[in-house]
Amino acid sequence: MVRRGSRTVRETPPGLGFGNFLYLWLRADSEQARGHDHRVVRVPGMDPWLDMFPSIRGLLVERRDVRPWDRRDPSWNQRFGVEFTREELQAFIRRHLIGSQLTRLGDADRRSVVVNVRRGDYYSVPRLRGQYSFDIPAFLDVALDASVRGAGPVERIRVVSDDVGWCRERLDGLLRRRAGTVEYQALSSTPQEDFRAVATSPRIIGTNSTFSYWAGYVSSFLHGEQAQVVVPAFHARHVDGGRAYQLDPAWTIVEDIPGGWDA
């Protein structure tokens, strides 16, 4: 069938998380701002986030309402400065994310760093481990040096992760050598609470996940030039030679680590 409808729909692939949802929603928002009817198919995994960001519902369409003649959009919309501009990103954050309790600022202590470690299926599923894994302790050692050089001493580190147990076991000694206080997000915390903890911090060290990237975008919006986001240049071995194309060039990007990203 030749699709000639006035509406464009982005199907939502299975298995996506919040960070990937946001890139799809950003695309729909930018297109709608240009006067185009562009929608993303709602899936149940979006619902807890829609409760926090209700205006996103205006960017969605129910699967049952997708028409055979609707145009389709295959874009992932993740290339910073290529598939979306800084201005589009900031407009989206302003329209849909600011004002939520998840982006409400608390005390912005610049002596504290939030470390966001992505584990999960990146390390538990062999295929994904081959694509996304890297030496997290080696990266954090370099990233903490970069954080101190750019924004001064670190007195407190807060770890937010989908595998807090692994972080306590493998990272605690390294982190306690760097800061007098090391805290871990509660095991009972929700993804929404985790996002708020990272995104509202003025100093972030993230790993190679879209969750970290979006927390960085929001922190940069909230804190402006006072924000410091430290991330690895590496994202995934099977895409663009491994280099992350989602990164804001204003961030502090760790280009390499001892032993390399494949160690």
Rank of each mutant, 00 (worst) to 15 (best):
M1E: 09
R4S: 13
S6Q: 07
T8G: 14
V9Q: 07
R10L: 10
E11Y: 15
G17H: 14
G19A: 08
F21I: 08
L22T: 10
L22G: 03
A28D: 01
D29S: 15
A33Q: 12
V41I: 07
G45E: 09
M46W: 03
D47W: 02
R57T: 03
L60K: 05
L60N: 08
E62A: 15
R63D: 13
R79L: 09
F84L: 02
F84N: 03
F92V: 01
I93Q: 05
R94M: 01
R95N: 06
L105W: 05
A108Y: 06
R111N: 06
S112N: 04
V114E: 13
R118D: 11
Y122T: 04
S124P: 12
R129W: 06
D141I: 00
D141Q: 06
A143K: 00
L144M: 11
D145G: 08
G150K: 11
E155M: 05
V159L: 10
V160A: 13
G165V: 09
C167G: 11
D172V: 03
G173H: 07
R178E: 07
A179R: 02
E183R: 07
Y184D: 11
S189A: 15
T190G: 15
D194W: 02
D194V: 02
A199T: 04
I204Y: 04
I204H: 04
G206Q: 01
S209M: 00
T210K: 03
S212P: 01
W214R: 09
G216Q: 14
Y217D: 02
Y217I: 03
E225P: 08
V231A: 12
F234H: 15
H235T: 14
H235F: 15
A236E: 15
R237W: 12
R237L: 11
G241R: 09
R243F: 05
P249M: 06
A250C: 08
T252P: 08
E255H: 08
G259C: 00
